Simulated assay, not measured.
Amino acid sequence: MRVFSYGGGVQSTAALVLAATGRIDFPVFLFANVGNDSEDPATLVYLEQYAKPYAALHGIQLDELDRVRRDGTTETLYGRLTREGSRSLPIPVRMSNGAPGTRSCTADFKIKVIGRWLKAHGASADKPATVGVGISLDEIERVNNRRSEPYERTVYPLLDHAPPLRRHDCARIITAAGLPVPPKSACWFCPFRRPATWAETRRDRPELFRRACDLENLLNARRTALGKDPVWLTRFNRPLALAVTAAQDMLPGFDPADDALCDNGACFT
Rank of each mutant, 00 (worst) to 15 (best):
G134E: 03
P150I: 12
E200W: 12
T224S: 02
G134N: 06
F236D: 14
L226V: 04
R193E: 15
E207P: 03
A125S: 11
E152G: 04
P180S: 12
D258R: 05
W198P: 12
D126M: 09
A171N: 01
I135W: 00
N144P: 02
L208N: 10
A177E: 08
P195A: 01
N144L: 11
E139Q: 15
L179I: 13
I173R: 01
G227T: 08
H161F: 13
D214I: 10
L219C: 13
C190E: 09
A260G: 10
C262G: 13
M250A: 04
P256M: 08
D160M: 08
P150L: 07
D126S: 12
P180Q: 13
L165W: 00
G134R: 03
P230D: 07
D204A: 06
A196R: 14
L219P: 05
T175D: 10
D126Q: 15
V133D: 00
G178M: 01
T130H: 11
V133R: 12
H168P: 00
Y151T: 02
A225M: 13
S136Y: 00
A241C: 09
P239G: 00
R223M: 00
P164D: 07
G132Q: 08
D138G: 06
K127R: 11
L158Y: 02
L137Y: 02
S148N: 07
R153E: 09
S148G: 15
L159H: 05
E139K: 03
E139G: 11
L179V: 04
R223D: 09
R142G: 10
A129D: 08
L219F: 04
R194I: 00
A129T: 02
A247I: 11
T197C: 06
N217P: 00
A243G: 02
V131Y: 14
C262L: 07
L215M: 08
P183Y: 09
I140S: 11
D229K: 15
L219W: 06
P239L: 14
D214N: 08
C190P: 12
F189L: 07
P191Q: 12
L158D: 02
P206R: 02
G178T: 11
T201L: 15
L240R: 09
T224G: 02
C187D: 14
E207V: 08
L218A: 08
A225E: 15
L179Q: 11
E139F: 03
D138E: 03
R146P: 04
R238K: 10
V155I: 13
G132M: 05
L208C: 04
G227M: 10
F209N: 15
A247W: 11
E200N: 14
A260L: 15
L218Q: 05
I174V: 06
W188C: 05
A162C: 00
